[in-house]
Design a protein around this nucleic acid. Structure first.
Lengths: 334, 334
DNA sequence: CTGTTAGCGCTTTCAT
DNA sequence: ATGAAAGCGCTAACAG
């Protein structure tokens, strides 16, 4: 539990100035081989680690980028983070991941922490398209990219998905295979959700009546919704199509339906959204709208690094197109 | 994209010294209400965010703790992180999550970054029980707790699980329900794995011959192992029990078995380890050894905060006991 | 209650 | 090739 050793002590022990030690660290080639080796030996012997705070204060880039997601327990975000890390790691940047847990104040606090700890760049999946965080980021001058969201001002760089189109794909598919009733099940209020609903509503052409259950946000809430659906919507009797705008929730619903011995997809068919890893391996593989989640993270990370290198570069604006993936939860022939 | 404003400019604009501004931030009550309000107004108007690097350098705690896990794409670690965040959040600490991706150099680098950025504490699931990282942590003087690992020296604080007992539970259960052959499937080399294998081997009493497939580390590798098991171990003909020391892998294997129309649990039964969230909702709910994952994270976080408050406190040494959870993958009556 | 001053540990001119 | 000194933005005695 020795006390942290500083550059000054290294310097003293080596009979050189702090400046020389610093050079050994940042630009070794300009210091004489003999001194360099001597200093390195001392550094290693003491396990000296430069104080990043001091380095940062003095102007050195931190080589870390902050990533802010909305929840940990949703593979959608985890897979994005993985994509980011895959790009960052080989370029010798580290990723710092934080979760806002869908709480605006927490998001703001994280952003402030990130800004004030001078990370080199920030990737954020904002809770809202006019969140205070975005404003703070704009002001900070730190390169950043929004993920899964387009700012109100439509100005900030983003890597997002065409959610209107995704909603449309679902609507068209459901309209073609319509049952006696259709139920739309949605979760956290978020721009991406608004778009999905819009795309869906505008293109829903089936005769089957359409109902809407909002605010079903998690796996557990999906699971718990099933008894309600049975009681209120008579899904045991009426053949039903469920469009659930979040795979995580959809999989919770599947669990509930199975426990109630409701046949999927004959009695109730389900279409999800996101195509998280879990969707293809759940009890009933899930038909869903895919967003190429890994790509989102990778593209965002690459663009951010570019932005850090060349701050005056044109701001990236990426809209990833969705795909319909048909699996057993909606398709009896699978 | 305004330039970052500093405490000096706030002070000048308010006609006070930097010290007074600093006081408004850290100890508002001791500054006259009138001045305080004036200063606050200026701070808000400029969206001033103090530079954490400077604060840290000057000695203020950072109120953040670093968490290092081995992989992102394994719910075991994500659930631990969630538990940690649940404790930290209300106490106004932030969590910085990083993944070593099972690479020792990356782990070391992350630890160095964390140490040198003066986080208030560190939680780490080390790759190895004598990793360089543990040594660095000991030297750093920063409070830390090992997760899911007990250091070689047996000295460092930890929150871990009794993996020997877990292996034993699996062995006893399998011995009671033995089939024609048993296959042990293991993954990343890790202390917890050694213990599980030891507990298992010491208590395996079945007559069925035992084989071992090591180095099956991920969901995909599990999935890809199935054809090999069919070809080499004749699992289509011989009734087989699989003990897979990692749920993630076990679930990949289940996917493969189903695609090959091999009946679970009649033909092949499977016992996993970890009891991740996914285990109860996979295509075939998985029999597994539970470790109360959430508790690990929560306990570790609470103990770490205590350690930060009272550094001289006795170092925590927690060993969580495992439980056998029987589900359909091994039990035809479920 | 408020200002002055001296660092925190490092990098970076500018000299030598 | 190396050293001296200034400064990054903030906090914390110590005075007043």
């Amino acid at each position: 539990m020795m006390q942290k050793i500083t550059i000054a002590e290294i310097a003293k022990e080596a009979n050189v100035s702090k400046a020389t030690v610093s050079r050994v660290l940042s630009n070794p080639s300009i210091v004489q081989e003999k001194t360099r080796l001597r200093i390195l030996e001392i550094i290693n012997r003491h396990n000296y680690i430069p104080n990043q705070l001091a380095q940062g204060l003095a102007g050195t880039p931190t080589k870390t980028i902050g990533v802010v997601i909305d929840e940990l327990s949703n593979d959608f975000f985890i897979e994005i983070a993985e994509g980011v890390d895959q790009i960052l790691s080989p370029r010798d940047f580290s990723m710092q991941l934080s979760s806002s847990r869908w709480v605006q104040e927490k998001e703001t606090k994280i952003i402030k922490t990130l800004i004030s700890s001078r990370v080199d760049g920030i990737l954020i999946a904002p809770i809202s398209d006019n969140s205070e965080s975005i404003e703070l980021l704009e002001q900070s001058g730190i390169p950043f990219i929004l993920i899964n969201c387009i700012a109100r001002n439509n100005e900030s760089p983003y890597v997002s998905c065409n959610n209107i189109e995704g909603g449309k794909l679902a609507a068209e598919y459901i309209s073609r295979h319509s049952k006696e009733q259709t139920i739309l099940i949605t979760g956290f209020l978020h721009q991406s959700l608004d778009d999905r609903i819009k795309g869906f509503s505008d293109h829903y052409k089936a005769d089957a009546p359409l109902k809407h259950y909002p605010d079903v946000k998690t796996f557990d809430e999906g699971y718990n919704l099933v008894p309600i659906l049975i009681a209120r919507e008579k899904i045991r009797e009426k053949k039903t199509t469920l469009f659930v705008t979040n795979d995580n929730v959809a999989i919770g619903i599947i669990k509930g339906l199975r426990e109630n011995n409701i046949d999927i997809p004959q009695q109730v068919s389900i279409i999800g959204y996101d195509d998280i890893r879990l969707s293809s391996i759940s009890q009933i593989p899930l038909t869903t709208i895919s967003q190429s989640i890994r790509d989102i993270g990778k593209i965002a990370a690459m663009e951010l690094l570019d932005l850090i290198d060349q701050p005056d570069r044109e701001k990236p604006h990426f809209l990833i197109e969705p795909k319909l993936i048909i699996r057993h939860s909606s398709d009896p022939d699978d």
